[in-house]
Simulated assay, not measured.
Amino acid sequence: MDKSINPSLSLSILFLLALPLLSFAQDHYWWANNVGWDGQRFWGDYIVRSQRYLGPNALPIPKVFNGRVSNERSFGFSGNSHFSTGDVTHNLALYGTFNLVPDVIGFELYWVPAEYYTMSHAIKTERKTFHVFYNRRWASGDVYLHTIVQLLKAEKNRIDLALRIGYRFPSSNMVGMARYTDATGYYLDLSFGKKILDGPLKVGINGMAGIFVWQINQNAQNQDDAPLFGLGLSFASKNWSLSPSFRGYTGYLNNGDRPLALSFNGQLDLNSRWQLFGGVQKGWNDLLYTSLELGTKYRFPPKVSVHVP
């Protein structure tokens, strides 16, 4: 009886035994060689806190606003997919709108509670990810809060004009995988809306101009500042609306902090309470992703004032 071992079988067994070791080949020495570690600096100092070298939800470009405080109170969620060479990301997004004083002041809340991503070795190397997080696939994003204050109304002026104050709470993780910054940020912008056509089909032009600031927590530089801009159109009928727009910001460090985006968003009212919304976005310059979104929103009934004689 021939008890010799098949050479091919032996090689296969050795490969399977070595596979766990190969999966952890990206160790501290790989990272140190990749970033040129000086033996002292914190690993987070090597990650570039700009849109080009982070995940798609890290430093998103604020959307073009129509210059009008929304009088609705609503809650919504959406599924999002982002595609780029070497990085495919899927995430859940939550939205909330609360009107404090009708036509005067309102609040908006936005959060990505869960993000699943796959990144190639080349992208992980380019973004200088830390080896401890190399095989991670899940992340959670920062919370954004917008305060919107009405300044001018089209009924008395030629345009709607509003001040938007956006603040980012540092609640994200996976900085080591170059997904988020886990640092504060804010933006201020003036947003306007101007009706071009008012009838069964309403057509308008919208725009924004302001500043976008975020902390980068680097030794030599604490923050990056960027002019924020955007321009769009709006088309609306009784139960639907469409809004193409172009927007971006240009950071002064010029280290991948100048993203641009062309987007096309739409909304469809299913009834007085439920609404479907979605959009597609194409990134340019330092925004490397093409993104898709589809979601739904529930609008709470307005408060009814009861007059007591």
Rank of each mutant, 00 (worst) to 15 (best):
D2Y: 10
K3Q: 14
L17C: 15
L19F: 15
P20S: 03
S23F: 13
F42N: 15
G44R: 10
Y53N: 14
L59F: 01
S70N: 07
S74Q: 04
F75T: 06
G79Q: 07
F83N: 05
V88T: 05
N91I: 00
A93N: 14
A93V: 13
D103I: 05
W111M: 04
W111F: 02
Y116F: 07
M119G: 01
H121Q: 15
T125H: 10
R127K: 08
V132L: 15
W138G: 04
S140K: 06
V143K: 08
T147H: 06
I148Q: 13
K156A: 13
N173V: 03
G176R: 05
L188S: 06
K194H: 12
L197E: 09
D198Y: 08
G204I: 01
G207T: 03
Q218T: 08
N222I: 12
N239T: 10
W240P: 04
S243R: 02
S245A: 12
R247M: 13
N254K: 10
N254R: 09
N265W: 04
G266Q: 01
D269H: 12
D269M: 14
S272H: 12
V280C: 01
V280T: 06
K282T: 06
G283P: 05
W284S: 03
L287I: 08
E293H: 00
L294C: 06
V304Y: 08
V306N: 11
V306D: 11
V308T: 15
